[in-house]
């Protein structure tokens, strides 16, 4: 579905990403794990066309999307849920959802119903200003907004950032539910244990390179990953 081939990204003379290859198949859940500054967010930005790619190719559904405008990439069915539960904080929940369905306003009502089914809390707060929601609710709104566009691939950047442990569990449950409904999910996450429990496959990133990849179960039992990311317990 999504194929990233040998991409390079640099900020001036500093190489942020080197020779990255990843692959996401339809129906899968895939994680990018790695410490702060490993280049996870940069990779997601490069896929979305926010960060310019200096070499390599990004192919989505058979079409090349390297360095195409962000809005065009979004309209091809890539839904990014950015880190830090970003919402349009001066607008109401309903307006946020309406903005989410920018490219297919015709099936707005059907989408809205199915979104409210998954997120009953948002239905209750439909006319509330988004900036006054709690962090967890904002994250849900952020996910709901991207679902309104019926994306073919959901890219989630650090969904756990700045949220309470209990809320993080809820968010991951929601993502699991979405995967069961048939959504393909690419997840970037620092909390490696949470991520590996959730996904089918994962890529481990370190300072702009992919150092390991494989099925999640294999990585959990890999001693290197274990020491570096999961702590010595388990």
């Amino acid at each position: 579905m999504l194929r990233v081939e040998d991409i390079f990204v640099s900020y001036g003379p500093i190489k942020a990403l080197e020779n990255i290859n990843i692959n996401v198949n339809a129906g899968e859940t895939v994680a990018l794990i790695g410490a702060n500054g490993a280049g996870k967010t940069t990779l997601l930005k490069a896929i979305m066309g926010i960060q310019k790619v200096s070499a390599g190719k990004i192919i989505f559904l058979g079409e090349e999307i390297t360095n195409v405008g962000t809005d065009k990439i979004a309209n091809r069915g890539l839904g990014l849920i950015p880190e830090g539960h970003l919402v349009f904080s001066t607008m109401t929940v309903l307006e946020n959802l309406q903005l989410g369905s920018y490219n297919n306003p015709n099936c707005f009502n059907d989408n809205l119903e199915s979104v409210f089914e998954s997120f009953p809390i948002l239905h209750k707060r439909i006319n509330q200003i988004a900036g006054t929601l709690s962090g967890g609710e904002q994250q849900m709104l952020s996910i709901a907004r991207s679902l309104m566009a019926k994306p073919k691939l959901i890219i989630v950047d650090e969904p756990s950032l700045g949220l309470a442990p209990k809320v993080i569990g809820e968010i991951f449950n929601i993502l699991r539910g979405l995967n069961k409904k048939g959504y393909t999910i690419l997840l970037a996450e620092q909390k490696a244990k949470k991520a590996l429990e959730f996904v089918d496959r994962a890529y481990v990133m370190e300072i702009g390179k992919i150092v390991l990849h494989g099925p999640a179960q294999e990585l959990i039992s890999n001693p290197k990953v274990h020491n570096a990311y999961l702590g010595s317990k388990i």
Partner: peptide, 24 residues
């Protein structure tokens, strides 16, 4: 209106707007 909502969205956060597919 829809167009007005889009204008307000860009004025608040143009990056987020383009992420959700609004042509900036």
């Amino acid at each position: 209106t829809r167009q007005g909502r889009v204008l307000r969205a860009i004025s608040e956060n143009s990056l987020l707007s383009s992420i959700i597919g609004i042509p900036t």
